[in-house]
Write a protein that binds this DNA or RNA. Structure first.
Lengths: 147, 147
DNA sequence: CTGCATGCAAATAGTTTGCATGACG
DNA sequence: CGTCATGCAAACTATTTGCATGCAG
């Protein structure tokens, strides 16, 4: 993120370093994940990837995402209703806001989360390893549109 | 919750008030949801219900849960991996902690969430309608068990 | 009685898996 | 060259839906 190496490169190098092979399909998938700011779903990633590698299969997309999840470079955001979205830019837990109308997702700034974890840990005795904080609302654009 | 009427009664009355029919299956399902502190999944609710109404179908469980979600008396907690858990005791958004080993879920005390929503609203222009805050960790019991 | 609720089975959607073929290292 | 990745199709799982029958109001 500091300029002399891109997130794309970082993820590719990490895969390489773990002994995984670098294939054009994987590069394409990682590239979409590294460059998408809109927290894409599998379908969206798939559609982007086949623009450049039309033979790529959905299974490969799933397998690659799964691989990236395992090495901790992609976060899956499950929304119960069978719609997973992915964050490949910042895989560490952080808050999201999803618009309930247009389904867009953004990353708001919000501190005081780590403190919360610690407070919680002390209070409950749990060893906190992760968290998720999602807000649901109506984005400014959708508020303007007449129902 | 204040003694002179139970959560079960409240939910049944609300269903009745909205014009829905009160069937023994619905009572049984609502009862499980109203009395379970462990945030049960559909399978668990189903298994409890057929103890008393062996003919109850899974479809009815799903339909009733869906109904209760619509009238705002049950919260669905989706965990992406196709494992929904439900909270029928306190349907308003509140934090959870799930143990990543035994999958138990408890409700910790944690204030300062509403402030967060307001701060967020002011910052992003979103009209926040809901949120979810889930922590993942290892519960005290599971920490004792040797891996 | 009348219509909504039930229960069964089939349909659906998202995701995973097995296996033969192909290509990275 | 050997092994791992790919792509296809079939398998899976959780959930939804259609429809005939049953029961609540």
């Amino acid at each position: 993120m500091n300029g002399w190496t891109s997130r794309l490169d970082y993820m590719v190098e990490k895969l390489k370093g773990k002994g995984f092979r670098i294939t054009p399909q994987r590069i394409a998938i990682v590239e979409v994940l590294a460059n998408s700011c809109d927290h894409p779903g599998v379908d969206q990633i798939y559609r982007e990837v086949i623009k450049r590698f039309p033979t790529t299969s959905l299974a490969t997309v799933y397998k690659t995402i799964s691989l990236l999840k395992e090495i901790g470079e992609v976060t899956e955001m499950g929304f119960g209703d069978g719609s997973n979205r992915y964050d490949g830019r910042n895989p560490h837990p952080h808050p999201h806001i999803m618009c309930v109308k247009c389904k867009s997702i953004i990353d708001p700034d919000l501190s005081s989360l780590n403190e919360m974890s610690k407070e919680l840990s002390a209070e409950t005795g749990y060893k906190i390893v992760s968290h998720r904080l999602d807000f649901f609302g109506v984005c400014p654009d959708c508020q303007k549109k007449i129902e």
